[in-house]
Amino acid sequence: MTWNKNTKVMAGLLGALILLVVVYFGITAWNNKQQEKKDAKAEAEKIYVTDVAEVTEVTYDAGSGALSFAKEDDDWHYADNKDYPLDQSYVKTIADTFGKLEADRELTDGDSLADYGLEQPAYQVQLTGSDGTKSVVYIGNATGDYYYVTVDDTKKVYTVSASVVSDIQHTLEDMTKLDTFPTIGSGNLTKVEITENAKTTVYDVSNDDDTESIAAVAGGLGAVSLDTVAVYPDQELDLAKYGLDEAKRITEKVTYTSDDKEQTYTFYIGSEDGAGNRYLMVQDSDIVYTITTAVCSNVLNQGE
Score class of each variant (00 low, 15 high):
residue 213 S to V: 09
residue 8 K to V: 03
residue 43 E to N: 14
residue 165 V to D: 04
residue 44 A to K: 14
residue 286 D to K: 13
residue 16 A to L: 13
residue 148 Y to E: 09
residue 294 A to V: 08
residue 227 D to H: 08
residue 262 E to H: 12
residue 184 I to N: 03
residue 265 Y to V: 07
residue 19 L to F: 02
residue 301 N to C: 05
residue 206 S to P: 00
residue 27 I to M: 13
residue 85 P to H: 01
residue 123 Y to A: 05
residue 237 L to P: 05
residue 20 L to G: 06
residue 277 N to Q: 09
residue 251 T to K: 07
residue 3 W to Y: 10
residue 302 Q to V: 05
residue 105 R to L: 07
residue 296 C to V: 14
residue 80 D to G: 03
residue 15 G to R: 03
residue 59 T to F: 01
residue 122 A to G: 09
residue 244 L to F: 08
residue 155 K to W: 04
residue 197 N to S: 12
residue 200 T to I: 11
residue 27 I to C: 01
residue 83 D to H: 04
residue 2 T to I: 13
residue 147 Y to F: 13
residue 73 D to C: 00
residue 65 G to M: 03
residue 258 S to I: 08
residue 206 S to M: 13
residue 229 V to A: 09
residue 78 Y to M: 06
residue 226 L to R: 06
residue 233 P to I: 08
residue 123 Y to D: 07
residue 220 G to F: 05
residue 94 I to S: 10
residue 66 A to M: 12
residue 133 T to W: 00
residue 47 I to E: 05
residue 213 S to L: 13
residue 181 F to H: 03
residue 250 I to P: 00
residue 75 D to Y: 03
residue 216 A to R: 13
residue 211 T to M: 14
residue 34 Q to C: 11
residue 302 Q to E: 08
residue 285 S to R: 01
residue 97 T to G: 08
residue 204 D to A: 14
residue 249 R to I: 11
residue 138 Y to R: 09
residue 215 A to Q: 09
residue 157 V to R: 01
residue 122 A to P: 00
residue 25 F to Y: 09
residue 195 T to P: 11
residue 226 L to V: 05
residue 226 L to C: 06
residue 152 D to R: 10
residue 219 G to D: 07
residue 52 V to M: 04
residue 250 I to F: 06
residue 4 N to V: 00
